[in-house]
Design a protein around this nucleic acid. Structure first.
Lengths: 233, 233
DNA sequence: CGTTCATTTGAGTGAAGTCAAACCGAGTGG
DNA sequence: CCACTCGGTTTGACTTCACTCAAATGAACG
């Protein structure tokens, strides 16, 4: 069963603007609300690129790293999936990227066949899937702009802001604490940088008093305005 | 009316794998098949980022450049839309990118309200919209990998191959001629490079005898295998 | 307290960017 | 028909930002 307490306190941020539509509606559908959950340990994979697709997953807890691998080992992280996000929503038979837990996570497993059948009879559900995918597309394109046009500083700043938008609690607007469950390597692979450049840029932001680095996974935003300036757009 | 001759010879390549599903099905729906077309001159805009969204467009002829602008004028081209592609398929009220014709083009204009109403009553149509968006998302992510991880040579090679896949005629497999309706600047802005780097890289490919540059807008692929090697993946 | 893994910091290199000039093809008008 | 312009492209010389390689630091764990 769903751990309601955990879910409630997590404040479902679906993509940029917190948006509870998908969750509230899908939860009322038996096929989705009753689907079993699976616990995934840190670094464990939910699925691998190229494997046949059997389920769609909705993140319940934790963060999942979605990435594509090149033949020589280079990696591009294409997204971080947060609670409320749906992953594996592609029409292809096989997964076109890998999904690995950044930290211990819980995912709800919805068989693709079930979802497809429900959607074929329920235009509202089909439109929700469309809407969720359109939102993900917009996210991907924002990342594209950041990587294609931005300097290291702009990419990191934009990344921090997008994480902030995804994870900030409605109640706790004031002192902006940001949890980074992913490793530097994963940030680097998301932004098309190296871990050294990520580290140097974060250090620079610290010396500029824009952020404060509590420890490897917790930072505080000290000067939000300045961070937005640095992000460029 | 639709120019059937032109359409037939254009061989609708919807995204990477030519896929006639969306076209053949949407054409049978009165709202879409009967929608009026609009001719757009080269460099003219179909719509601007930020403007309220009134229509969804299906490209009938020509190529449309989709791009986002940064405050300081930098530009990221996010996609080239070819005949058969749908653009403006987002759930937001306003356009989140601009659409400009690379050359004289014809687009079919479908009012968003009509489409929304049709989809709400027709799960098959809703699923088609979902599927088309999922395909566009996959394209965007491929571009992300290319830009995030690739060298200039890898980006250009991958780009040429993706264009080839989009535009090659089923009948004319042999001597691979590639038409580039867009300017160097637009290729540069797609790949996160400068026009100088694009030009130098194409020149390098020419001296390597991988391609032959007939004129600014026509090139021949002389060594497809080598081009695929250079693309990396 | 040593081992391990991730991160930070430092020094030198290189691929792509910038600035500048030459080139080219298509119009246009004398 | 040729000279001129104009936009786009190509080529060249130099610079720079991020990468590479390497070493130091730090945190977690037995």
């Amino acid at each position: 069963m769903l751990d309601v307490q955990t879910v409630e306190t997590k404040n479902w941020p679906l993509h940029h603007k917190p948006n509870n539509d998908v969750r509230s509606n899908t939860d009322r559908r038996p096929a989705l609300a009753d689907a079993p959950t699976r616990t995934v340990e840190a670094k464990e994979h939910v699925f691998w690129e190229g494997a046949p697709k059997s389920h769609v997953y909705r993140i319940e807890e934790g963060v999942i790293v979605l990435y594509k691998l090149l033949s020589d080992g280079r990696r591009q992280v294409i997204d971080f999936a947060y609670p409320g996000d749906l992953i594996g929503l592609e029409t292809k038979k096989d997964h076109c990227f890998s999904a690995q837990a950044a930290c211990r996570a819980k995912v709800r497993c919805i068989p693709t066949g079930t979802l497809r059948r429900s959607a074929a009879q329920d235009p509202a559900l089909a439109l929700e899937l469309f809407s969720a995918t359109a939102q993900t597309l917009d996210n991907a394109r924002r990342l594209l702009v950041s990587i294609g046009q931005g300097t290291a500083m702009e990419r990191i700043s934009t990344f921090l802001l997008s994480l902030l938008r995804r994870t900030e609690r409605a109640d706790l607007q004031g002192d902006s604490c940001l949890h980074l469950p992913m490793r530097r390597m994963e940030i680097a692979d998301l932004l098309g940088l190296t871990i050294e450049t990520v580290s140097r840029t974060l250090t620079k932001l610290r010396t500029m008093r824009v952020i404060e680095i509590a420890n490897k996974t917790e930072i505080f935003i000290r000067d939000l305005d300045q961070l937005e300036n640095l992000a460029g757009l």
